[in-house]
Design a binder for these strands. Structure first.
Length: 966
DNA sequence: AACCTGACGTA
DNA sequence: CGTACGTCAGGTTG
């Protein structure tokens, strides 16, 4: 190795230079912290500013740099965009709420005496590269803080990239060794690897199917990207093919990801000292941002000491500055969050011990009566939807349980009750006296408990014969209301995501399963349980102000919690199936499928796997030479039913292909049905011959339920053969029929109500054939002159509205010309002008506020509405159009379920709800209750909510689900 | 073994 | 180039 000819320009031995990617850090901060907790009274978001300060302070405290520079991108394209127009298309889709914070971050840096640099035409990355090279040459130990992997090319013995992991705290020090270890290439080779792999976050495609592994393999084989290009022909297999097909893209990627290291910045490293804080400016800015004094003290502690380094100061702790929630408890709520404080736990086994503990720990402050004794049931406009549980949560009992909570196979392991810093754990089995004591306690303390997952808890408690009346707060439901498109699989994930606390190896078995095999040592188990309890408390403290601020407590207390209870009952009850009919169907479908398969094989001349799209593509488009129609998103030719159908029609002169396609289509259908039936058979509970699905209450982003294990919400219903499967769902022992009630056109009725469109409202009030009536209005013809086609077209248009259907899509569905579809749409909106305005307003208000809202205040956030990527933005617009409509329908059905369940209980009947399929309820009918129950359920559904139009419910009853259709 | 994709069932 | 889901089977990845 030759000596460096250029002598260091300044004596920088042992000094550290920290170069920060400002945008990357701001992004990170923005997405790490809930914007709702960090905004000023005027609505200016401050989460990114606060997070930026916190994170930067944290790095300064650990790394103690002597020089510091922050680089930013400048608005407007760079030379890279000219080469690659989609460059950073996804990344620049910064939400407005973040963009408005960038100037604030820069003002803060100025106030703190930190130099930041931006340069038109260049990216922050190039500035970083330049600064890093300068530091390297001058002999600094140079650190680059960036979440952009392109920075890895800068790494050498003097330059280390600090790359944030899942949690910002665990910054990875990317040294040459670390890069080598992770990617198996040198830092200098890294851009070659990145070019091959692509960068999804920057919207840069690489070679499909090639990841880090293969890219590294080739680089090591041929030395570099140039080497690979020269020998591209020698690389075999699918990946070789893919490489050759995309080689131009890769070369372009490589040009774009090369960082410029000699940007004329007009600053020298000597300008990058820091520590000259302008106190007055910091005061003014922090006051404006409504940051608390604690934040200011911590920030100043780090930055005031400046280049001299701070002696072991802590990073700013996670405290919310000026939470936008009411001031009564801003600190209290967050206190428990910074570090979990697991309660002290003791094991008890007798009623006496439990009662003693309760007596000693009964909270001093009582829960407001109207909350503790809240009873759902009033869903009228007059109901007080502004209720809140306030700070009462901190005085409530936490109830939690562990074990297998899958309906039909519940195995309860233990339960616990905690309050403040004390908890008791009770292992299963529970002694009778203690059980009674617990039952009395739960009954007496109804409405004063907090839980994580009421439905699951009911299963666990039910496993030992206990019940828990409606809790005050459910942290799992709260998390869902706060962020419905995030789904945590277990407590740990919830805590990591919402509280940004990463547990130190506090791994617990996945919820819902319970491993009898290797039970953890008792002490570990207790520690884990105490931790879980602390997590439930901390999440509750975290969510409660947010729920109150959004006025969503009523949603939780009056809708979600009662629905949890109904769902629990439905899951526990399950749906009875006729096993012999099921197996007979399976055998019949299997035979049909096998027959179709053999015929297909005969025509193909080979025993290919008909269930493999890949093999089908080869046979159809290569061997038989058929003309492919559409492509899949990954670029291969689709073999879906629509494509096969059109190929089938077009291939009448080709006997082989036609025969094959016909057989293939039949095989597809029958095999699918066989598979559905088999899945049902596999999920029958041996003990009661019933199927116990699990209804997921916190999965669907719009507020709908979903059904898993098995999914009973997608049992075929559209064609006769499939519909037969519904016939296997029958009443169980002691029941005589199944009844099904469903809403007609709920979503359209919601649109009529919310838009206030008189014409559409009139169409519903008329009580006539709705679609025909609408068609007569659209075409300005008497109802009796409307043709079937016209009705079908208008019906498709009506339904398409709520999905954001394009005229192109409409045309395709109706097999009409796009021009005709366009004309239909125009006529439709001429007739229903307010519907048009309403749909437009949905999207524009979502763009403004960042979220949509259902009738009952359920929110969904849509950051992608501000995306610069048209595809992403258009998709978000359609989703934002649909969310409040689908979501309001879901709210209405949930209310209907609670009302129906209540009505059935109050009437003292044995009939019970067993299934919900979005707009349909299935009820198992006890002998002689048919008529009465039908009216109860119909009434509950029809009057779930008062709209400007009536809610129409149609009901049917029969000896099985199919026969209950109407 | 864990993940992804294509296909397809429902509202 | 229509929203929201869950499941299976095949195929690839580590």
């Amino acid at each position: 190795m030759s000596a460096d000819i250029q002598a260091p320009s300044s004596a920088a031995a042992n000094e550290t230079l920290l170069v920060v990617d400002g945008h990357s850090l701001a992004f990170r901060a923005f997405f790490a912290l809930p914007v709702d907790n960090f905004s000023t009274s005027e609505g200016q978001a401050t989460n990114a500013v606060w997070g930026f300060a916190s994170m930067l302070a944290q790095v300064i405290d650990t790394e103690k740099p002597d020089r510091l520079g922050v680089a930013f991108d400048v608005k407007g394209g760079t030379f890279r965009n000219t080469m690659l127009p989609q460059y950073k298309g996804t990344r620049e889709a910064a939400p407005e709420e973040l963009l408005t914070q960038l100037p604030l971050i820069q003002r803060m840096l100025e106030a703190l005496g930190v130099t930041y640099i931006e340069k038109p035409g260049y990216e922050g990355d190039d500035i970083i590269a330049t600064l890093a090279s300068m530091g390297d040459k001058a002999g600094y130990r140079t650190l680059v803080l960036s979440g952009d992997r392109d920075a890895f090319q800068l790494v050498n013995d003097n330059v280390t990239v600090l790359y944030p992991g899942h949690h910002f705290k665990d910054l990875k020090h990317m040294t040459p060794q670390a890069i080598m270890e992770k990617y198996k290439v040198t830092p200098a080779q890294y851009p070659d690897l990145a070019a091959l792999r692509g960068e999804t976050t920057d919207n840069i495609p690489g070679v499909p199917g090639v990841g880090d592994g293969f890219a590294a393999k080739w680089i090591n084989q041929y030395g570099s990207l140039d080497g690979i290009c020269e020998h591209a022909d020698e690389i075999g297999g699918k990946k070789g093919e893919a490489l050759r097909a995309n080689i131009e893209q890769v070369k372009l990627n490589r040009k774009v990801n090369a960082l410029v290291r000699d940007v004329e910045l007009g600053v020298s490293l000597d300008d990058l000292g820091f520590g000259a804080v302008d106190i007055a400016q910091v005061d003014a800015l922090f006051k404006e941002l409504e940051f608390g004094s604690r934040t200011k003290t911590r920030v100043l502690k780090t930055f005031n000491t400046g280049s001299s380094g701070s002696s072991g100061t802590q990073a700013i702790s996670k405290t919310s500055p000026a939470s936008s929630a009411s001031e009564t408890e801003s600190v209290e709520a967050e206190e428990g969050v910074a570090a979990l404080q697991p309660p002290h736990v003791e094991h008890i086994a007798t009623a006496e011990q439990f009662e003693t503990w309760v007596g000693e720990h009964r909270p001093q402050i009582n829960v407001p009566r109207e909350i503790a004794e809240f009873k759902p049931g009033d869903y009228s406009e007059q109901a007080d939807r502004g209720i809140s549980c306030g700070t009462a949560v901190s005085h409530a009992w936490t109830v939690h349980a562990w074990g297998d909570v899958r309906p039909g196979r519940v195995k309860t392991q233990a339960l616990a009750v905690a309050v403040a810093q004390s908890a008791v754990i009770i292992e299963s089995p529970v002694d009778d006296a203690l059980k009674q004591s617990l039952a009395a306690f739960f009954a007496a303390e109804h409405g004063k408990t907090i839980v994580y997952g009421y439905k699951e808890l009911l299963h666990a408690l039910g496993g030992i014969g206990l019940d828990l009346p409606l809790p005050m707060f459910d942290a799992k439901l709260a998390g869902y209301l706060i962020q419905p498109d995030f789904h945590a699989d277990d407590l740990n994930q919830a805590v990591e995501h919402f509280l940004d606390i990463h547990g130190e190896d506090t791994q617990q078995p996945a919820q819902g399963t319970f491993d009898f095999g290797d039970e953890p040592a008792a002490a570990d188990a207790d520690e884990q349980r105490a931790h879980d309890l602390a997590v439930v408390q901390a999440l509750t403290a975290h969510f409660r102000p947010m729920i109150d601020e959004r006025e969503q407590y009523w949603l939780m207390k009056a809708i979600e919690l009662p629905v949890s209870r109904v769902l629990h009952d439905m899951e526990r009850t399950g749906a009875k199936v006729d096993v012999s009919r099921l197996t007979a169907m399976r055998d019949q479908f299997a035979e049909d499928a096998r027959f179709a398969q053999e015929e297909a094989w005969r025509h193909a001349g080979a025993e290919i796997n008909l269930q493999s799209p890949k093999q089908l593509q080869k046979v159809l488009f290569e061997d038989m030479g058929l003309k492919p129609t559409k492509r899949t998103k990954s670029g291969s030719y689709t073999t879906n039913a629509a494509a096969l159908q059109s190929l089938y029609i077009k291939s009448f002169d080709n006997e082989q292909a036609n025969g094959f396609l016909g057989a293939l289509l039949r095989h597809r259908e029958t095999n699918k049905l066989k598979q559905i039936v088999q899945t049902l058979i596999d999920s029958i509970n041996m003990k009661d011959g019933r199927i116990h699905t699990t209804f997921e209450q916190t999965v669907a982003a719009t507020g709908r339920l979903s059904s898993v294990d098995p999914n009973l919400q997608n049992i075929p219903n559209r064609n006769a053969a499939g519909r037969e499967i519904r016939g296997v769902f029958v009443p169980g022992e002691g029941y005589e029929a199944l009844m099904s009630c469903d809403y007609s056109q709920v979503e359209l009725r919601i649109m009529a109500d919310l838009s206030g469109d008189e014409a559409l409202i009139e169409a519903f009030r008329s009580g006539a054939d709705f679609h025909k009536y609408v068609a007569s209005m659209v075409y300005k013809l008497p109802v009796d002159q409307i043709t079937n086609d016209q009705r079908t077209h208008v019906k498709a248009m009506s339904y398409g509205l709520a999905y954001g259907l394009s005229t192109y899509g409409l045309a395709q569905q109706l097999k009409i010309a796009p021009r005709e579809a366009e004309a239909l749409k125009n006529r439709y909106f001429e007739t229903f002008g307010k519907v048009h305005d309403y749909l437009e307003s949905l999207v524009s208000s979502a763009r403004e506020k960042g979220y949509t809202e259902t009738i009952f205040g359920r929110r969904r956030y849509f950051p992608a509405l501000r995306s610069l990527n048209r595809v992403a933005r258009d998709a978000a617009e359609r989703a934002a159009l649909n969310a409040p409509i689908q979501g309001s329908a879901a709210d209405i059905m949930k209310i209907a379920m609670v009302r129906a369940d209540q009505a059935l209980h109050e009437a003292g009947v044995r009939s019970r709800i067993i299934l919900q399929i979005h707009d349909e309820l299935v009820v198992e009918i006890a002998p002689g209750e048919g008529e009465q129950v039908t009216e109860l359920v119909r009434n509950a559904m029809e009057h779930a909510v008062d709209l400007a139009v009536p809610l129409d419910v149609s009901c049917g009853m029969g000896a099985d689900w199919q026969l209950a259709a109407h």
